[in-house]
Nucleic acid binder design. Structure first.
Lengths: 349, 349
DNA sequence: GTGAAAGCGCTAACAG
DNA sequence: CTGTTAGCGCTTTCAC
């Protein structure tokens, strides 16, 4: 078997409790004794048995992460931020992917409870409401990192999707676009995609543009879905001058489709995304988008969770991370003389 | 406190051991008794205390994953595959990112040992040799999922980087390219990048093309590094007709740079990548690359680890996952009449 | 300052 | 088939 505390105690010539005290930085140990113990620990390459410690103390220094679609660049960076900050604060991570299925989420929640995790980060959008009630029932510290949760008891950190989507549409309108189409996330996504939708509607209303639900095509945040959504858009609305995809990957898929059709971006159609992943700097044209930092989001989520774990509460439990409209090459100011609408009018006139 | 087995036993009117037997599918329990216990478990929403179980049994159903650069699409998919297969087989995952630093790797290894993980997947390339000796000393099942490990005791699963890189260069040569440049991975990367380098050299030799180390620029697998490596290449070797980046992101960065310079891909220069991430289908031009499946690699790594854990050994401990050359739009057959070399010659002549 | 002893919740002989 | 019992390795009173 592995080296145990008993072995250390024996080698150091002290009792079990003294070893434990030294390992836990207890100040009630003579420095000389401590040194003896430390020497023995080193010599035996002793590693504490975490299960025994957890069993006794009921605290695990373990944080559970339940995510979905984490292979998407934005979320992969979120995970990276979570990991880095968790490590920094002495937590290890149990990581589970739910594939957006409630059953798997529930399952992982149970597993994590069994492991006595100190807290949990939830990055899941579909059945979050059901999840929430389980989590509340389990009475475990939780931070939601994938959208705004209105329940006042629940902490969350997210970009302000409504405001950001609003900003983007406002920018498009100010650039002269009236004839827009949109690529949403999955309709099952009750958080980010819904919020962005709200932001779009708001901006449309304030710009006196009529809301037309047919102009919102459902995607699933992949390149492929952006590609096929663009196809639908071009078929149904050939006169569109701007397409707003709710994430960068779908925008890239859109651009690819348009180019295949010989449609120039941005000369013929402007295309914008959301998230601001690295890729957007290297596409042709480079992508106009809303930039937010997944890494920072991850950091912040652990920071909040840590506070809840340590202090039992958190003063500000709804936080927004910054976002910024980044205008690159995929958007055009619509010169009034060359607006398609105008051209048509002129041709008719 | 939480519900314990004692509570279940009391409610069901049986002893602790009976409850334990039922929970562990022990067949020596009358069906009726089992049902009583199950009912009590359900009623109390009992969750086993994993720490107690681990302490007692010394097996955790926990797999440790130590990775680096996991935000890269290929590796994000690898992680997804690991997670899916681990879940399938009843393992939970402890996940740690090493940032490619030995100290962090070592640290995580200790943490994981303390948690009595059943096995470990290593996806790290820089100091893998030092890691290996620790792991061997810890005597814990391990599978390496980021390159070929020659140590006969160590299991590994990876794409055949040598063969794949060879295939790519051979393809380029057969397309008439003689004047090539390459964008390597970091020189610290002792696995994938080194292996691909070997494959390239081999193909060069067999095609009677002289190896020139100056034509191998170091990158770090990011878009950005591909972009700047391409800049160096164009400055130093303006007559290059093909660039082979050792992953797709760097290839995309390369294409972006070339386009900015007004260099046409593939008409002026062919660009190829490695990995076959989704993105490559949606760039303009779509990317010629070596396709391998990160997800499948993840699956396989858990499958192997599981076998080592269960059977104490594995017959075939070096496995290669399939790869395929996928020719898309970023490469051109160099027509002999329009080879730059030929043109120059003709102009001179 | 340090040691002895109890017990966290579970499993696995062993007895019946 | 089921119950009793003895720990797994640690922390934490409680003595000294």
């Amino acid at each position: 078997m592995d080296v145990t505390m008993k072995d250390v105690a024996k080698l150091a010539g002290v009792s079990l409790s003294t070893v434990s005290r030294v390992l836990n930085d207890s100040s009630l140990v003579r420095e000389e004794t401590a040194r003896k113990v430390e020497k023995a620990v080193e010599k035996l390459d002793y590693q504490i048995n975490d299960s025994a410690r957890i069993l006794r103390t009921n605290t695990s220094n373990l944080i559970g992460v339940i995510g979905a679609g984490m292979e998407r660049p934005f979320l992969a960076n979120l995970l990276k931020g979570i990991e880095a900050e968790a490590r920094e604060r002495g937590f290890a991570l149990i990581y589970g992917d739910s594939d957006g299925e409630f059953e798997k989420e529930q399952n992982y929640l149970n597993i994590m409870k069994q492991k006595k995790i100190d807290g949990i980060i939830l990055i899941t959008t579909n059945y979050y409401n059901d999840l929430l009630s389980i989590v509340k029932n389990y009475n475990i510290p939780v931070v939601f990192a994938s959208g705004y949760i209105s329940d006042p008891e629940i902490s969350c950190v997210t970009v302000d999707n409504v405001a950001a989507a609003y900003d983007m549409v406002e920018f498009l309108c100010q650039s002269g676009h009236k004839n827009m189409a949109f690529i949403k996330g999955p309709d099952l996504d009750m958080l980010a995609s819904q919020e962005r939708l709200r932001g779009v509607k708001l901006a449309l209303r304030l710009s006196d543009i009529e809301y037309d639900s047919k102009r919102f095509i459902e995607g699933d945040f992949t390149f492929e879905s952006g590609y096929s959504a663009a196809k639908k858009i071009i078929n149904k609305f050939p006169d569109v001058t701007a397409i707003f995809a709710f994430n960068d990957e779908m925008a890239v898929g859109t651009i690819r489709f348009l180019k295949e059709q010989g449609i120039k971006v941005p000369e013929d159609i402007s295309v914008v995304g959301f998230d601001g992943i690295d890729l957007g700097n290297y596409t042709d044209p480079a992508l106009t988008t809303i930039k937010q930092s997944g890494y920072h989001l991850g950091l912040k989520s652990i920071e909040m969770l840590n506070q809840i774990i340590n202090e039992g509460k958190i003063e500000d439990n709804k936080v927004f991370i910054p976002h910024k409209l980044v205008v690159r090459e995929s958007t055009n100011k619509l010169n009034e003389l060359t607006t398609k609408q105008e051209v048509i009018t002129k041709n008719r006139g």
